[in-house]
Design a protein around this nucleic acid. Structure first.
Lengths: 196, 196
DNA sequence: ACAAAATTTAAACAATTGATTAAAACAAAC
DNA sequence: GTTTGTTTTAATCAATTGTTTAAATTTTGT
């Protein structure tokens, strides 16, 4: 029987453990324990640790792609509004899943295969956001920088949490309000950087 | 005999391997091979893999602190010039050691001990850069954001290299010129973000 | 209710890996 | 040149970990 309850439990558990520890440091025993399931069932339902990992990765990347596509092709919003929405949504997402960016970076660094599954260059090239920025007279170079800088300002404060907390002497609560303030600040900064 | 040639070879090799693979995934056998030295010598000169790691980490963090302090306390430069110099120097450094930021983030995420060795909040608080920004009428909040945003714009394009290359369809050469252009762009962006 | 198939379990295997050991090679002191 | 202490080596240990196996248990089809 495909898609049994056990199979799902394993996949969910693996997703948690892999994102927390990365592929190499995640032990099959951790996954089995997290799923509340016998160790051997991992190899019974999925051929191997690696096969399980690849299935989860592919799904995650595709989900991410779909959510991004939804935002950047929304017919009802301006370019500026799109940026605000993306910043807010991804900061909220990353507050809940702070391990995600470092996990993705680590695992994608040497395997471009996975990344190519989503044909990333197509995503932006054919997007409404792209066209809207074009109409505002932005060059290709400026458009790319705008995306990369937005990503930088959103993601790095999540990745660098312990370093930021140490350097700016922020406790947990101060760090949270700092992130909250960035939801309004980043769109403003992007606008002043690129004269939007 | 302390600081023998072998001891140094091990430390140098370990530094390379740890930064490349992280603590857990770096094998003592990798380090021994990289050093061209018998496996057992690692435990002979350093008590354990962990002791070796801590020694290297502490040294690296202190070196980093010293170089940062030099820049942000330079009496001969304005605040804007300091930012330009820091951006240029760290982008150059990270071009040579692209694994460094993800390594640091990964290893510091759960061990605040190491980070506290450099008393990071003191570094900025007593700096000339801090005073110069103060005199320009910047609030504490703005000063912190300025530092964090500079760090974000510098570091993320290094960490996210494969993702940026995929999304913006840049080959190796295009990526390098992209980084080179950021050395002049980032200071300009920071200025327009914070009205410097 | 029974047989066949699918699922689950405990145990074990084989490879990896940090660390140790005991002997060998080498250097220093006298 | 012998003794003593240091450094290096090869071999081994013990723990960890992905995977397999064979038996036990549960589910399914009739």
């Amino acid at each position: 029987m495909k898609n049994s309850e056990t199979e799902q439990k394993i996949k969910n558990a693996a997703s948690i453990v892999f994102k927390q520890k990365g592929f190499k440091e995640a032990r099959t025993r951790d996954i089995a324990e997290q799923a509340g399931v016998n160790l051997a069932l991992i190899n019974y339902y999925y051929k191997s640790k690696e096969a399980l990992f690849n299935e989860i990765m592919t799904e995650s990347i595709l989900t991410f792609k779909q959510s991004l596509c939804k935002y950047i092709n929304d017919e009802t919003t301006t370019a500026q509004e799109k940026i605000t929405i993306i910043v807010n949504n991804y900061l909220s997402l990353l507050q809940q899943e702070p391990n995600l960016p470092i996990f993705l970076v680590k695992e994608l660094y040497n395997s471009s295969e996975l990344l190519n599954k989503i044909k990333p260059e197509e995503v932006l090239k054919n997007s409404l956001l792209q066209k809207q920025l074009q109409e505002m007279g932005k060059t290709n170079e400026k458009k790319k920088n705008l995306i990369i800088n937005t990503m930088s300002l959103v993601v790095l404060p999540i990745i660098g949490k312990p370093i930021i907390q140490a350097f700016c002497s922020k406790n947990e609560q101060e760090y949270l309000t700092f992130l909250e303030e960035r939801k309004t600040n980043i769109p403003i900064w992007i606008k002043s950087m690129f004269n939007l």
